[in-house]
Design a protein around this nucleic acid. Structure first.
Lengths: 150, 150
DNA sequence: AGATTTTATATAGATATCTATATATCATCA
DNA sequence: TGATGATATATAGATATCTATATAAAATCT
């Protein structure tokens, strides 16, 4: 089993994990502030996930994909349904299941959100393209390792 | 003003920010699970912050240092006080202020927590020392930039 | 086929966080 | 010095999340 790295001890690992925690926090806030139509980060994530993959998924599948508990995803999906941004499609072969399907209004809301977020692209980049590229594989290994250590 | 990077658009930046968000989430959970005595991450952070700096701070100072709202810090400090892990020292010159001071029990609890977290150090490291070192300055610049863009 | 186990989702209750606002105290300035 | 503005903290109310558990349907097993 791989190590849940940087939990304590080594000051270097600790410092990295601290930066990651703060960055996630700040980015999530910045992200949420820019989302239109009272969309929350969690709600946007569901719409974006389903539209990127061009698919419909059950609440359980969404919960696992987006790393939240199943009741949390039930709640997020219910909010989206109340806003008519998704519909719940019953499965004819399994009456326990309803698949989450993004509605036209949901597609529109997500595209509007992406546009609003894209507006920040005109601002100067913090890191060079090369540096972003450098970060990705390291963070990916770290994430996979933490994930498998759960 | 620097850019709240990776909010959308560029797939590379988006991927990096996604990894960071998931890593923070997983690490926070792993961290919380290992903390003894019903300490939460937020409570541990306060104890660790004050003990590392060997100081006492007001609720406002703690809120700014640990990047949470003032009412959140009020609540965290109240919990710590109820557990007798900190005491609130009144300022003789300013009766609005009480400084948070870690009690002997608080020091003990934090040291016990650090030891429990350190136990994970025996497990194999995910990234090499060199890779951790590579990550830190990049993440640091990203954090500073996001912070100043708030 | 009926009983048992597994799976998908919902509900209940707890907690941590946020924003908005109230309260108390201090600082400033006319 | 008294009014006004600023600062430190507390309180209220809302939301998002979690764990534990209930419910319903499907799958399995004897």
């Amino acid at each position: 089993m791989s190590r849940p790295a940087g939990l304590a001890g080594d000051p270097l690992e600790f410092a990295v994990m601290t930066e990651i925690s703060i960055i996630a926090h700040l980015a999530d806030n910045a992200f949420a502030r820019r989302l239109p139509d009272g969309l929350t980060t969690a709600q946007f994530a569901v719409l974006n996930h389903l539209l990127r993959l061009e698919t419909q998924q059950t609440i359980g599948e969404l919960a696992r994909a987006l790393q939240v508990s199943q009741p949390t995803m039930s709640s997020t999906v219910k909010k989206l349904e109340e806003k008519r941004l998704v519909t719940l499609v019953p499965d004819p072969d399994d009456r326990r299941i309803r698949r989450v399907s993004v509605s036209p209004a949901g597609t529109k809301a997500r595209n509007k959100a992406v546009k609003a977020l894209d507006a920040t692209k005109s601002e100067p980049a913090v890191l060079s393209q090369k540096e972003w590229k450098q970060l990705l594989p390291l963070l990916n290994r770290l994430r996979v390792s933490l994930d498998s250590a759960r």
